[in-house]
Design a protein around this nucleic acid. Structure first.
Lengths: 343, 343
DNA sequence: GATTAGCAGTCAATCCGATCGAGTGCCAGC
DNA sequence: GCTGGCACTCGATCGGATTGACTGCTAATC
């Protein structure tokens, strides 16, 4: 059974180990923190912690190192979230404040977060099925090609070109205007997720000669909606992996692969439940199935009044500064909510 | 002075070393390639090669390793470009053939190239100053906000929102249509690089009440042009760096940093002159100033009939398969030219 | 019962020396 | 110009000894 003091011991072991990457011994603990007891007593506490699987000794006679379970305990019960310094708040404000479009906001955000944490930072591009169509635009590129532009709520614009089938009547400006008007009437204000059936209904209302063209256009719009449904991540700070290389006893290869694969990380994001503090933590072997058994991921959500827009997060070795990083993720997520929420 | 055979020796040293990462000795050369002479003779040739700085011995008594200069000689005079296998050509065709929009083409291209070479692949997003304005669209988002969409030649769409200043007259649909028409009349068909002066001229022609709005809009268009002017890279295969880690005796950190910094690589791209084979190679210390002293970069250009659109390239350790990678870069660059050229 | 001091034991890390072997440089002879 | 042969160099590898940082345990103490 682990005593009250035992938990304090665990806390300092995590802190010291994170700070120095050295296994920490009983003597160094009393030297540095006192505790008003002798090293032997600390050793007894450590034996209890080890019994419970919270710490482990790399070899028979060396200091102790937190296990994944130990980090979990630390994160859930021991860590006090160190609030951002005013300087850091300021940095976030000014750095993100002057952004222009969505891409720009996301890029700056992810850079900011990776600098704040010295880890790999991830920001999920807002998911669109929840957003609404704002405008559809058709632009003739040539007699046989058409550019379809889809503009949504969140300020997102997506474009794609269509070949107009030969057998179709050639496109004059008038026909185009008609088509454009019809599309906008039907679609504007609708949720993206609602569009596919609306499009098929629309086909019935146009003169047969125009159908082939319409069909191509609606196909493309459907494809746009569909493509956007699969989320994307914006990532920054991969170089930090090389800096923390020592903390990946295996290799950073699987981590780099996960970053390129995005899919894995997105799944992880979607599966993580946010705890009371608004940030969720997945530690070490908890991710083993994804090849990330030596990594931890922190995730926070950002949302508009309408609902969750996406996640922001941080990826790094299990030996990371959880207190600071949780605070950073939370601060950035909040700021992003404010920025994108009151649109 | 290096003899004819000496150059052959250099070639096999490069080949063997690239294949095995082992310094190659005189005996292993005669064992594997014969040459009709004894090991001692090869040693004499090697002494000459070393004299010329083309190879070096890591320690007094070990085999030889190519120097940067040796690789340079190999690339310029010794390497025969191994043509792509039919299977590889096929792969490029099918993989890139079914792409939709520009982003998609670039993403697929860069993935393809990194798989083909097992290195980090880079594709430069086409530079826009050479492309022309196809259409400008203004979409009202709210009484005080406007979305400005700029569509260009290469199928690129760029969007940004503007706050309409309070003191300005509120925007009705008519005023908007007028503004839209004016902008399109002036800009459509023009090179992006020509737009800024045209925009300032335009201001004089609108009624004063509309000027503040116009000003905001033109500011934004100018900013869009400007942002696009700074090139971007699409990158894939960073995980391959971890695989070739052994070949970066220092660390892969500076390389990862360069990848994130893009700027450095873009400068490099722009400075590299393409040789007769259409691919340019920068080796090892030739890049030392950029922190890439242990890396080599291959670059090829892709172009439309109108001119160069951008570069594609590969980044990896100096110890790489130059023959194969040059062929891959060339093939991909050509294919990209074909795909984007006949737009 | 919790704490402590003290002691024996363990094991990674480090150093040292011996040995091995791949590969060179050089020279004398063809 | 080529070759065979020999001495030499030096990294890599191994075993053994030493060191030092820890722990675990026990017996004494508060």
């Amino acid at each position: 059974m682990v005593s009250e003091r035992g938990l304090e011991v665990l806390r300092v072991i995590v802190q010291d180990y994170v700070a120095s990457r050295e296994p920490v011994g009983s003597k160094s603990i009393v030297d540095r923190y006192g505790f008003g007891v002798s090293a032997a007593t600390i050793r007894n506490d450590m034996a209890a912690l080890e019994e419970d699987g919270l710490i482990a000794a790399p070899h028979t006679s060396s200091g102790r190192v937190p296990t994944d379970k130990g980090y979990r305990m630390f994160v859930d019960h021991l860590a006090e979230i160190r609030p951002m310094t005013p300087a850091q708040r300021q940095a976030i404000q000014t750095f993100l404040g002057e952004s222009a479009d969505l891409d720009d906001v996301l890029t700056r955000t992810v850079r900011m977060l990776s600098q704040l944490t010295n880890q790999v930072a991830l920001v999920q591009v807002p998911v669109l099925p929840r957003s609404r169509v704002r405008h559809v635009e058709l632009v003739p590129l040539s007699p046989t090609r058409l550019l379809v532009v889809l503009i949504t709520d969140a300020g997102h614009v997506d474009q794609r070109t269509v070949e107009v089938p030969h057998e179709a009547a050639p496109l004059d400006e008038e026909a185009l205007a008609d088509l454009r008007a019809r599309l906008n009437t039907v679609l504007v204000g609708r949720l993206l997720s609602e569009t596919p059936p609306l499009l098929t209904d629309l086909a019935a209302t146009v003169p047969p000669a125009r159908r082939p063209v319409l069909e191509r256009v609606t196909d493309v719009i459907a494809a746009q909606v569909d493509d956007r449904r699969q989320d994307r991540l914006v990532i920054s700070g991969a170089a930090n992996l090389a800096r923390t290389e020592k903390d990946f006893p295996g290799s950073i290869l699987p981590v780099l692969e996960a970053i390129e694969e995005q899919v894995v990380l997105l799944r992880l994001f979607s599966e993580m439940e946010l705890d009371s503090r608004g940030v969720s933590v997945s530690i070490g072997r908890e991710n083993a199935s994804l090849g990330l058994g030596e990594a931890s991921i922190l995730a926070g959500g950002y949302r508009s009044p309408a609902g969750t827009l996406g996640h922001v997060g941080v990826l790094g070795p299990t030996r990371m500064d959880y207190s600071g990083n949780i605070a950073a993720v939370r601060a950035v997520a909040r700021y992003l909510s404010k920025l994108l929420g009151d649109d």
